[in-house]
Design a protein around this nucleic acid. Structure first.
Lengths: 224, 224
DNA sequence: ATAGTATGAAAGTAATACTATTATTTTTGT
DNA sequence: ACAAAAATAATAGTATTACTTTCATACTAT
């Protein structure tokens, strides 16, 4: 996917950070290496201490950018959904036919992720893998309702609603557009998880992405 | 759902515990109060220290039953899936027609949970809520592949496969029975989560359980 | 009566998730 | 070129967690 504009910045809720990591070299290195490190160690074993050591910086400096590692995860996941939303809008915007539009939408959100050179310090392939393996941890907390009110999940919700609206446009009588939209977005990442860890529970594989399954699912649901 | 047998014991992988909690009074109180406490505090804030205090027992005594709180979560989740599988089999076993059977299966796994008096120290309603809000944490770990090999997710996998087989029986040509089965089981709990925390992302509600949505989804998929 | 088993109490350890203080380096405005 | 301000680094400290260890006590079965 190519960008039309040279300089795009994915806007993330500014409560996720104390200081915008895009505003400095250290900030970008924190983001860059946190992705590498969370991918390598898993979110639970990842600490700011280890991250500081790995980028030759100090724990306390990282705390000036992010309050704690949960907020960093919210930053990374919001960035991811913002990035995906951008591709989603770009790919579907010009399509007039509601069915074609919806099909394209499902493709964008369920196809394998490839590197996007526009954001040099962010490895989208690894970040996608973090989302597949850790995203639920960002909202499976006792603070989810407060954080939701504070807007930490806005981009994700907006994306689900965009899909939901497309389903409604393609089939105004279909009674479950929001549930179906959330099923496709959440389910898509879950199918990738199953391919990696529980291959017997899915018909998808390294070679068969969940795209065909979800296209089949959605179009059979709305065209009874 | 009534049980046919007076004394049913849900069998859980014995590696989840050091000493079977069903074998003693203290063990049962650990399980009983861990459910109350995880439900109240969330899994992340729950500790064996707090649990010990609340049941008037000692942290070290709890460690004699469960290695750590992750293993306790594996125990509770396995018990839950075993309990659900029992109801699933009981409800569907005698149905001959594959379509009726499948419909009943979806109902059992997606309907709201009610208290089951057969297991007096386990509150199934609260346990179900724990599954909705915490289940992913049992497998979103770096150890998932090892633990999967060691059989910690057997019951869950067996349940997905039972659903998958029913889908195949109802519609042998349908190409994604496993993916659809995992979507229904995982998606069902996700829809309950959305009802609780992100109601704008679902068409289900307190009054409309996800059952109808999933029946619609499955039957439109397999009867093109 | 006693050996074995279950539980409790208390203390200790290493790691985590921070906070606070002070020092040093870098950047910026004039 | 120089001073002030801002950013970063170094160090130390705290409370909590997730255990482990040791020892004491109680209860249980023969």
């Amino acid at each position: 996917m190519k960008h039309l504009l040279q300089t795009i910045k994915i806007e993330v809720n500014n409560k996720t950070y104390l200081k915008d990591p895009e505003s400095s070299d250290l900030g970008k290195r924190i983001v860059e290496h946190s992705i590498l490190m969370i991918h390598e160690l898993g979110f639970d074993s990842f600490t700011f201490k280890k991250l500081g050591d790995s980028i030759g910086s100090n724990e306390s400096s990282i705390y000036r950018y992010f309050e704690n590692k949960h907020k960093l995860l919210l930053y990374l996941t919001s960035w991811y959904w913002g990035w995906l939303e951008y591709q989603f809008v770009l790919a579907t915007n010009s399509i007039a036919d509601p069915m074609d539009k919806l099909q394209k939408a499902i493709e964008v959100i369920s196809k394998p992720v490839v590197l996007d050179a526009s954001f040099s310090h962010i490895n989208e392939v690894l970040l996608n893998d973090i989302i597949v393996n850790e995203y639920s941890k960002s909202y499976l907390t006792k603070e989810v309702d407060t954080e939701n009110k504070e807007g930490y999940f806005e981009i994700y919700k907006r994306l689900v609603m965009r899909i939901s609206e497309m389903i409604e446009e393609a089939s105004p009588e279909y009674p479950y557009p929001s549930s179906l939209a959330s099923t496709v977005l959440e389910g898509s990442r879950h199918q990738y998880f199953l391919v990696q860890h529980f291959p017997s529970l899915t018909d998808c594989s390294e070679k068969v992405p969940p795209t065909n399954y979800f296209i089949d699912l959605v179009f059979n649901s709305i065209n009874k």
